[in-house]
Simulated scan of single mutants.
Amino acid sequence: MELWYTEKQTESFGITAKIRETLVTEQTDFQKLDMIDTEEFGRMLVLDGMVMTTIKDEFVYHEMVAHPALFTHPNPKHVLVVGGGDGGVIREVLKHPGVEKAVLVEIDGKVIEYSKKFLPEIAGQLENSRVEVIVNDGFMHIHDHKNTYDVIMVDSTEPVGPAAPLFERGFYQGIFEALKEDGIFVAQTDNPWFKADLIQKVNRDVKEIFPITRVYAANIPTYPSGMWTFTMGSKKHDPLQVDETQIPELETKYYTPRLHKAAFVLPKFVEDLTK
């Protein structure tokens, strides 16, 4: 007998993967959490029926959340990751030696616990001495830490359940206030095929708050449609003005210095969503 997992990405479309084994299934205080081992993508974290990360393709998302912002800011020392309990973004942040402290604020401690157990390749840096892990509401942490961070990264689920407030204008205003005078923030903003209205809304809200707003994209096969967008808001530094020849090579699998600006070159139908 074959077992298959299907994520219904819309009411009429889904992605399916053959399962070797179900490792965890649990209703946490915040969401339904499943950890499954798949034939094609290896171990997979699923929250509320949505694929969050897999061993095979996780590097794309985590690298593209972290490195464009960190190489745009000239001297990022204090970094906040909201969400991201699997630890992948933290792992990438720590590849920047100038970062003195990386704070992870994850609302669901079970995500951290099971990621450490079943996704050590991703979560392996959560106990690094430069990392502080806080199990709490990221929205409230932002509110309570004015003028604190150089870079803030929002690694959230889609805007349902506990992540819904992380896509509201008030949250972006709070991020602006939590950043220092030349701070930068970046958030994942879903895909243009099924969530075009979300990209437009976030882009509009961020533009009203930040003087520099840019959208970029990456290819992540297990995320809806495969094309995924990220929105960056910056108080001072423009990612398109970065001298890519000065970006050092890191141990990465997707992000490169040449890709830094190229990621911001969008297909016209996506670019139109940002106007």
Rank of each mutant, 00 (worst) to 15 (best):
Y61G: 06
K56D: 09
F167P: 00
S115F: 00
D144F: 10
N219F: 08
T213L: 01
G183H: 04
V154P: 03
K110S: 14
P68G: 04
T6H: 02
L94M: 11
A164T: 13
D37A: 06
V186Y: 00
F167E: 01
G124W: 05
V103K: 09
T22N: 10
L266C: 09
F59G: 06
A196R: 04
N136S: 15
K236R: 12
P248K: 11
P257H: 03
T22M: 14
V60A: 07
V135I: 14
V206D: 03
F30K: 08
K235P: 00
D150R: 09
Q188T: 04
Y61A: 13
G49Q: 05
W4I: 09
V89R: 05
Y172F: 12
K253V: 00
K261H: 15
M50Y: 00
N219Q: 08
L33W: 01
T157D: 09
K275G: 15
Y254P: 01
G233T: 10
V265A: 13
K101F: 02
G233Q: 04
G84E: 03
E113N: 13
F269V: 07
K268C: 06
H143K: 15
I220D: 06
E39D: 12
L104K: 11
A163R: 00
V151F: 04
Y216W: 03
A217T: 14
A196N: 08
N75Q: 14
F167G: 05
G84R: 03
P120G: 09
T72A: 07
Q241W: 00
T222K: 02
H67N: 04
